[in-house]
Design a protein around this nucleic acid. Structure first.
Lengths: 218, 218
DNA sequence: TTCATTTTTCAATGACTGTTGAAATTTTGA
DNA sequence: TCAAAATTTCAACAGTCATTGAAAAATGAA
């Protein structure tokens, strides 16, 4: 049975990916050993090397696994709002919404797989060692699509203002995804790190207002 | 001579701190070994353990060293703008400016010591492992002072909105400090990671507009 | 000088690191 | 059922890890 084979083959490989994703998200690349991954995945030590070549190959496989789904979902959201807007193109708010809203679909609170992935991306994005290289590789093609849409929505803006505005958006978003628990403590429990819906509802108007402020002639 | 003794004593200890600061900023806590620190500081391996107890003690000493200066400088900026504003209290923009402007004084482009420190804080802030604990410890007392000022400037806001807005500010700021080079690539060199003045000039109006948008009754 | 204190060096500890051949096992396609 | 292919296990490799006692050197105060 091909199905049985596929199931078993995928089973261990994915167990390794899930375990490593959770560990890398919490401890970073160098804070995780292949043995920790093997133990958490309940798998022989040598198996991860067999499937992914080496530790770095495992790390890349984790980033790659969900990047495709994520980018595709966001791209569809952008194209949909562009289609609805017609010739004039979507508003800034609609573009920001297309950038952020798809993330809610992955069930941040319930789906720990996606949550770990986002935590990992947050760390990578803020790492001088990995950030420039890996974020560019996995996310810049999509980011350029959004930048093009924003340029059209804000035609009077100097390009530099747009790039910095996007940068602020990226930082706000990734810290929100980092799930550090800091906002819980600072707010004495009034705001919760895991409350992605609450974060989304506030981030869209916050970021939109920021873009409008620095990217329009006054 | 007490001075000579002091000089020599501080010399190696600070060489270790500087070397470790640069390495931790680039590779994170687990990506750096005591041997790497010793080599970079041109110092015997055992010396760092002698001065700081252990690796974690060294890490904490690095975070602590500049946190005091940083918090003090920012607090003075806040108090100064509060004093100038009088009874009514400063505007949102004045508070955000007091939060961000002091950072420029540390010469991000020229002073690699402070730059490494900010890169390190960016990583810590986005780490699920360290972020909640260490940022709370070193920076929340000051953050609460700013939150109080913002509450007074935006009295109609639900507290939750204020905390999320501050969170977005924190994320935008730390990614900017992370110095990953990503914005350079995305913008094809139009915007530069190290251009802190350019970032500051845009961040103040961007963040202020965001606060005004979600923290005022409309 | 003398002597106590602090700082630095040296050498070694046992534990953990990623990776890899070879053997054993399971699965696949016929 | 059979052999080929893919997967999994086992054992071991050469290094690196953080830490630490003890010896050595430098420094301070007298």
């Amino acid at each position: 049975m091909a199905k049985t084979k596929e199931n078993r083959r995928v089973k261990r490989k994915d167990r390794i990916l899930d375990a490593a994703e959770a560990l890398f998200a919490k401890h970073g690349f160098d804070g995780v050993s292949m043995r920790m991954v093997a133990v958490k995945a309940e798998v022989d030590l040598a198996l991860a090397s067999y499937h992914f070549g080496n530790k770095r190959g495992l790390f890349d496989a984790i980033l790659l696994r969900r990047a495709g789904v994520l980018n595709q979902t966001r791209l569809e959201a952008l194209e949909k709002c562009q289609q609805e807007a017609g010739e004039a193109g979507p508003t800034v708010e609609a573009i920001i919404d297309a950038y952020l809203k798809p993330l809610l679909a992955f069930g941040y609170e319930e789906d720990e797989g996606w949550r770990h992935y986002f935590e990992l991306v947050a760390q990578v994005n803020n790492s001088p060692e990995w950030g420039g290289q890996l974020m560019t590789k996995y996310f810049d093609p999509l980011a350029r699509r959004f930048m093009d849409a924003l340029k059209k929505a804000l035609p009077d803006s100097e390009p530099q203002n747009l790039y910095w505005a996007y940068h602020f958006l990226s930082g706000a978003l990734t810290l929100t995804f980092a799930n550090t628990g800091r906002i819980d403590k600072l707010s004495d429990g009034i705001a919760r790190s895991k409350d992605m819906v609450g974060a989304y509802e506030r981030m869209v108007p916050f970021i939109t207002a920021g873009f409008m402020q620095i990217c329009t002639k006054k």
